[in-house]
Design a binder for these strands. Structure first.
Lengths: 154, 154
DNA sequence: ATTAATGCAAACGGTTTGCACTACT
DNA sequence: AGTAGTGCAAACCGTTTGCATTAAT
């Protein structure tokens, strides 16, 4: 899964931690070990993860992790703009670090694979909808479902 | 909600029933009162409905309706090609009669409104992905989330 | 000292399942 | 008669909530 395009690895975690900590403090929010675990876990993924997967990942870091804390942390991380979520094939929430390049996703309903949909590929749609409908697409929330090349040939 | 474009009302229900009945029989499947209720309920909607809403709608027709039957019926209706589903804003399944014109949806995350995304509007994206990636978009499964014109101005 | 954040446990909502029973064909 | 479909009740899974407790500031 989470195929082809270059694995854009995030900035090294210590730096990222500092930045997140600062952003939280700016809003009077707090930096806790649990939040560090969530940030660490989500940083290790280069595609997207479901909330449930993330709970598991966090348990690998700290076995005492509880779902409520993870989900609440995901909410604040989204509020401060670090991550965003969309809905994948089965409709579950899928989170990912808000990337340098804003992007959507392509999901193959046949093999379950997933790829990034870059802005220039989405541009014709995004621009068209803005021009003709005044509709502003949330690209980072976009998941285009279909069949990938490999599966079509099979 | 479920705004602007012309409400494409389906074919009159008796005709539709007959067609569905035939399609079921062709596969050795059966035509039951419960299935009739589901077809009737989904025919009355011109946008899309979640599974849960459909359970409620069916209960209006037959109060004895059970979720399991509705969901199982939705599965077979999708198998025979009468309906299709995608995932809406909150990730719930959304079903709609497979329309004369295959289309996707636009969903406003701000007001909850929903509009049809017609093939010609999606064409630039669909064609581009097919050409450049060999990816075949399932247009009827596509929900583009963003902010509608009215909400942007507000 | 304040008050944000956690952990627990329970609830929730949508959806799915196993199984005995019913009713289309 | 044969087998597809139903209803029930319970389970499931991801996610959310209330509340008393803990800990970051």
């Amino acid at each position: 899964m989470t195929g082809a395009p270059p694995a854009r690895r995030g900035t090294p975690t210590p730096e990222r931690w500092a930045a997140v900590k600062r952003r939280l403090h700016e809003r009077g929010l707090r930096w806790t070990p649990q939040r560090r675990a969530v940030v660490e876990a989500i940083s290790q993924v280069d595609g997207h993860v479901t909330g449930a997967e993330l709970v598991a990942d966090c348990r690998a870091i700290d076995p005492a992790t509880t779902p409520s804390t993870v989900y609440r942390t995901l909410d604040v991380l989204e509020e401060i703009g670090l991550i965003s979520h969309s809905h994948g094939l089965e409709g579950r929430q899928e989170f990912h670090i808000r990337p340098a390049v804003l992007h959507g996703h392509l999901a193959c309903s046949s093999c379950g694979g997933s790829w990034e949909l870059l802005p220039d590929e989405a541009a014709p749609l995004v621009d068209g909808l803005r021009r003709r409908r005044g509709f502003e697409v949330a690209l980072d929330h976009l998941t285009v479902v279909g069949r990938c090349d490999a599966c079509r040939e099979r």
